[in-house]
């Protein structure tokens, strides 16, 4: 028995189906609206995320050893910081997107800089693009490494500050990373002629060298260790005299340096 008007004559079944169709339609419209709203919110969040990251200026960090000699081997994608012939030479493999590299720099950066300034240490920075697919869009690791090489070649004195600035306000893994114009603006703020970094990035001047450096490191037996993604090459990796250093030991650096 229905209280509603029944447009189709007879048929209780038709009437029930119609009524059910009515409430079903209201629910259906509500479901479509809620799901559509969720998708729109997602798209707005997506656009906002990209925009805010694109407008950010990378804060400049002036490195403590900005006066130390810097030389670059663009073919090997290696930048050496420190006076030639220092008693200790380290090979440091870093990816500008790698969070553990960021922590390494936060914790030990100053000690390394001081030792370099004192003439006790040379650091050979291998800038690799291990986490190339971990930025959105992919490619920040490669761009940052290439930009660092471009800076080192154009204005060697600006390299350590460029390096420290990128770790000082490091983009998050899975985030957008800095684009060519942001990297170029940072380099310009450190005295590199405007456009040099952007040109090097658009010409892919250092891409092959950075990628080759990573491939070489990935198969180098001395560089293998246990990483979060299993055994293999990871960043940061610090090598002294052909052996990996355990940088979880807080005294790893002071143990190597000569006592004054």
């Amino acid at each position: 028995m229905s209280a509603r008007p029944n447009r189709t004559p007879g048929g209780a079944r038709v009437s029930a189906a119609r009524r059910r169709g009515g409430s079903g339609t209201i629910a259906g419209v509500a479901v479509v609206l809620v799901v559509a709203a969720a998708i729109v919110i997602g798209l707005v969040v997506h656009a906002h995320r990209t925009d805010t990251a694109a407008q950010a200026t990378i804060p400049v960090v002036h490195s403590g050893d900005a006066a130390a000699p810097v030389s670059v081997d663009p073919q090997a994608a290696v930048v050496t910081v420190g006076a030639p012939g220092a008693p200790v030479t380290l090979d440091v493999y870093e990816d500008f997107l790698c969070p553990v590299c960021g922590q390494f720099e936060q914790v030990y950066g100053d000690q390394v800089r001081q030792a370099v300034t004192a003439g006790d240490l040379d650091v050979r920075y291998h800038v690799v693009d291990l986490l190339d697919d971990r930025s959105d869009p992919p490619g920040y690791s490669l761009a940052a490494a290439s930009a660092a090489l471009a800076v080192a070649e154009t204005d060697p004195g600006a390299f350590t500050s460029f390096h420290d600035s990128l770790y000082g306000t490091q983009p998050t893994e899975g985030g957008r990373g800095y684009d060519a114009s942001q990297l170029d603006a940072l380099a310009t703020a450190l005295g590199v002629p405007k456009g040099r970094v952007a040109d090097a990035l658009s010409a892919h001047t250092y891409d092959a060298a950075v990628q080759a450096s990573l491939q070489k490191a990935a198969v180098d037996p001395t560089l293998q260790q246990n990483t979060s993604a299993g055994s293999g090459f990871g960043t940061p990796t610090v090598v002294y005299d052909g052996r990996l250093l355990d940088i979880t030991n807080p005294d790893w650096l002071s143990a190597l340096l000569p006592r004054h």
Binding site: G24, A27, A30, A38, G42, V45
Partner: peptide
């Protein structure tokens, strides 16, 4: 990656209130 979480939340809310 940005839309999926909100779709999941929408499905969750609709199930919670029992709509459709």
């Amino acid at each position: 990656a940005t839309v999926l979480p909100f779709l999941e939340l929408a499905i969750g809310v609709l199930l919670l209130v029992g709509l459709g």
